[in-house]
Write a protein that binds this DNA or RNA. Structure first.
Lengths: 111, 111
DNA sequence: GCCTTTAGTTACCATTTAGTTACCACTTTT
DNA sequence: AAAAGTGGTAACTAAATGGTAACTAAAGGC
């Protein structure tokens, strides 16, 4: 148990704080994928082919709990679930946009 | 072995690419810590108290290999090592700056 | 009757990442 | 003689993350 005491000490660092929300391997990509559109579970999975459904489910749940995305479930058969960004999720878009820009400039045209 | 094939397919996504460089739990904080100044190993460790020396060493090595930071070793006794951002590392600053801004607005004044 | 579709859940295992503890080398200070 | 200071490394353990396979629901198609 290291965390409890240290977090409060370190949350002087705003970067540490945000990493607790979007610091996972997949979360920025998921948010990036939802940046402009509401998408169904299957659509997200199709756009991020290497994520497994289980992990996608877990990550979406965490993002939902952190109030970054909204999950709307339609009780139909077959089921339909739509995900979209909340206001807080949308407020991350400058970060994602900078990441996208950097990626385009530094990775895409180098390979 | 999943990666090889999928990476090339997915590097249409610039966010995926950048996450391979700065996606770890500590890397953004380390880069943020070096954003304006050259710092010694011990200084970085002091500013990020909950990271262990081992993990800090590992992360610094990876950042160095990815050409984001520069490591300069002075052969003195006691030894001195200075880390600073490379041009490529500095080019990440808009991202770090947006993260810092978001953290300040959304986390710091909420708690 | 069985397969398909969708968005999961559950159980279980493997891999990756992170953390702890002890220790080194070398000189100066106490 | 021993401790302090610096930037680590090695061996080991723990935690986080990722993956697979089997299962669910209800209606439609063959």
């Amino acid at each position: 148990m290291v965390t409890k005491g240290k977090i409060s000490e370190e949350v002087k660092c705003p970067v540490t704080g945000i990493l607790q929300l979007i610091g996972g391997k997949w979360k920025p990509i998921i948010l990036y994928c939802l940046r402009s559109e509401t998408r169904r579970f299957g659509e997200i999975a199709a756009r991020i082919p290497s994520i497994s459904r289980k992990v996608l489910t877990e990550q979406l749940r965490e993002l939902e709990q952190d109030n970054l995305i909204l999950r709307v479930q339609f009780n139909e058969i077959p089921p339909r679930v739509e995900y979209s960004l909340t206001a807080m999720g949308k407020s991350l878009s400058p970060i994602l946009h900078e990441m996208e820009k950097w990626g385009l400039e530094n990775i895409m045209n180098k390979k």
